[in-house]
Design a protein around this nucleic acid. Structure first.
Lengths: 159, 159
DNA sequence: ACCCTGTCTTGAACCATTCCAGTCTGGTGT
DNA sequence: ACACCAGACTGGAATGGTTCAAGACAGGGT
């Protein structure tokens, strides 16, 4: 995979090719689920200096163009990833905020057909799994599904 | 339903019974999915004056005790609801942020069994449906599933 | 009735993100 | 090649929801 194809992606998305954009997009490819701050640091290592706002601006442009997807887990800063278009969801560690990709076991959207959405017109379903990553489960003693803040959805099977 | 049973709920949850707590809990029962600011206003109408921090504090205590559930839709302030423990999810209006309850069509958690969560120990699955409420769909001309920012999960049925 | 723990108040800080005005530059047309 | 201009970047400041800190106060067990 040649990195030089990144500019072509930008072009294909009707976006100008600039150093910050290429840098953000490539860094994001090599480290999925990075947050804005991670990217600022990473891009600065590449280019010497970039303003925080430039990174946010780039991320907004890329998101609008559909090249990156924004994930906003409650209580954590937004994460970004380049894997777009496929129906996948995320696991988030309650402790360290680590994010992992999860393909829905059923493949795509069977339970995502909402039952009676009060007249809402639904166009997207977003699933976030909460739990603990391997490291945090080991670090924090006694963490198991029993110590979770809320019993939560999974622990209540259908009546 | 007597309002006076609210203190008993607090007691049952090992919480002290105070005016702000009773007020927050009862207001939250009568207006589900209220955000912190709504509650500050509502509680002030009842009690004359309460500090914003008291409301946040009460909400945190109630949430920790499992009496209320916190919903944090990306890009909107947190909402709170008293309906806890049952496996239900939410629809959020992209335009006005209105929130509605949705019972999963399948009843409970079939697709919520994550496939290969990278070693994560999952204890909860959170589903948020995005779309437009009845009013906003009418107000903003041309809104339909075709104008949605991202095609999203629902538009991609299983291969 | 007393005391202690936990709750409310006031005030300020926090953080991710956005807004603003100005300067610079990619890329298209001449 | 050159010039032009919409659109990107820079720096600085502001926003808004939420949380922290220190002190005054009060619920409720003893």
């Amino acid at each position: 995979m040649h990195l030089s194809e990144t500019p072509m992606k930008l072009r294909a998305a009707q976006l100008r090719v600039t150093a910050p954009r290429v840098a953000v997009l490539e860094e994001l490819t090599s480290r999925p689920h990075a947050d804005a701050d991670d990217l600022v640091v990473a891009v600065r290592e590449r280019l010497g200096s970039v303003s925080v706002q430039a990174v946010y601006d780039v991320l907004r442009a890329l998101t609008a163009a559909g090249l990156v997807r924004r994930i906003e887990p409650a209580g954590h800063p937004a994460r970004y990833e380049t894997r777009t278009g496929d129906n996948h969801h995320h696991v988030v560690c309650r402790s360290c905020g680590a994010v992992g990709d999860v393909d829905c076991a059923v493949g795509a959207a069977p339970c995502l057909q909402a039952d009676d959405p009060d007249g809402f017109t639904i166009d997207e379903a977003e699933v976030i799994y909460w739990g603990y990553c391997t490291e945090c489960r080991d670090d924090v003693p006694g963490i198991d599904r029993s110590t979770a803040p809320q019993p939560g959805s999974l622990s209540e099977p259908a009546p």
